[in-house]
Design a protein around this nucleic acid. Structure first.
Lengths: 248, 248
DNA sequence: ATTACTAAGTTCCGAGTAC
DNA sequence: TGTACTCGGAACTTAGTAA
């Protein structure tokens, strides 16, 4: 399913720790709070707890009491820390979700230093809601697909689900091809990010990610010259393999 | 040497990738630019280069062309990336300094996940400029030292130099004791962060870090009940070992 | 002592443009 | 096309307090 909502501009400052890399607007964490989370992790010993106060933390972190208070509340609201407030101060600990965010950062940095990048990902075919067919059939998009990808696209998308972090890492290593959005009197159609891939090592296609869509971060869509579903005899639940194609 | 310049408030939003952990106001990098640096590292392959444009990056990172342009300039000005602008776009690469910042983040995260923390650091005795003696002799500080550390301090500090990151990591694992600043008609005296330590496994003392001082991040001072220089027969250039003392 | 609200001040971002 | 400036408004931080 594709849901175009806005055009490219209209940035949200909120984002998940895909680290600016992906366009999903799922509001997870403000980037600025990442280092606060890291500091808490360091102080609390990761799985322990930290008894402190907003004044204490503001001194250690060179910020104001008010800002620490607000940012801790935000981290709690987003589920990254748990926070018990008492007249004596604050007891903090990192949640599983918070640990996950930190681990994501760690893995990204490790990849940078090891120059390791995933070259392929696996996915499971899902049913779309027919909207992909509609959007990919719009001439304004079709024309651009043909120009920028080098081939005319079949009117229909193959939806698949995969592992969120793997997807982020995967597309980060690929060259992005950007299909512009456009406006009609009725509504605005957003831009689409495309990444050339090979599906099941057999068929050339492109992984597409609509800008600012409401698609969860663990789903994406594929387009190709032909119907991937027919060509590769895929059904819902089929496993597919998506690999990097061409240069980077 | 101690240089007190401001009182605790007057925060700078600029900081080094000590990650909010330390109070040194050395203006290195805006936190918000860290993730941009990381993204460039991912895209450029760490030691390679990245040919792109501000528009391209703004799409990939969900920001605006103007913000990317500005932030890249900032990263360049602080020496974290090199940036060659041409009519065709921008050629970016990470500098050694940028790699260093990224590695710092990596190491911090690794420590968090491995729950490893340095328990001691080494330092080399340096000569101070006699100011330590002056400041530690001020009654307003002396009184607090006695109350908060549990002992009266000898009027004089032992300056030492050490490795910057090691120092950051070390103090992060310790409980901070905060000595408040104060004002006279003439001037303002800043707060002092204290960390109880043992010097050369023999003498109890405290590592002190004046708020917002101009001291380089690889230097600090020690105070104790007695003259450390005499007690431990130290001269300039002597190696000392500072270890965590008490709980944390 | 705390935390955290409101209002004021500051910084930051992005639209419009210049080049 | 590019990058990057100005400037108005949004977002964020902090001071002053309330609880």
């Amino acid at each position: 399913m594709i849901i175009f909502s806005k055009n490219h501009t209209g940035y949200s400052k909120i984002f998940n720790i895909t680290f600016l890399s992906s366009s999903f607007p799922f509001p997870f964490m403000h980037e600025r709070n990442f280092f606060l989370l890291l500091s808490i992790a360091e102080k609390s010993g990761f799985s322990g707890q930290l008894d402190s106060s907003t004044v204490q933390l503001s001194r250690e972190l060179n910020s104001s009491q008010q800002t620490i208070s607000r940012n801790l509340k935000e981290l709690e609201e987003h589920g990254f820390i748990s926070r018990a407030v008492s007249p004596a101060g604050i007891r903090l600990s990192i949640t599983d979700s918070g640990r996950k965010e930190l681990r994501r950062a760690l893995i990204k940095l490790q990849h940078v230093f090891e120059e390791k990048k995933p070259k392929q990902i696996k996915g499971t075919v899902k049913s779309g809601l027919g909207e992909g067919t509609y959007y990919t059939s719009l001439p304004a998009y079709q024309k651009q697909f043909e120009e920028k990808l080098g081939w005319a696209v079949f009117s229909g998308t193959l939806n698949f689900s995969t592992e969120r972090d793997a997807l982020d890492e995967f597309i980060h290593g690929l060259k992005m091809i950007y299909v512009e959005g456009f406006k009609t009197k009725q509504r605005t159609f957003g831009g689409i990010k495309c990444f050339k891939v090979k599906i099941n090592d057999a068929v050339e296609g492109a992984l597409i990610l609509p800008d600012r869509s409401n698609i969860p971060r663990d789903e994406a869509e594929l387009i190709a010259r032909v119907s991937l579903r027919k060509k590769l005899s895929l059904e819902n639940g089929s496993e597919i393999r998506i690999s990097a194609e061409g240069i980077h």
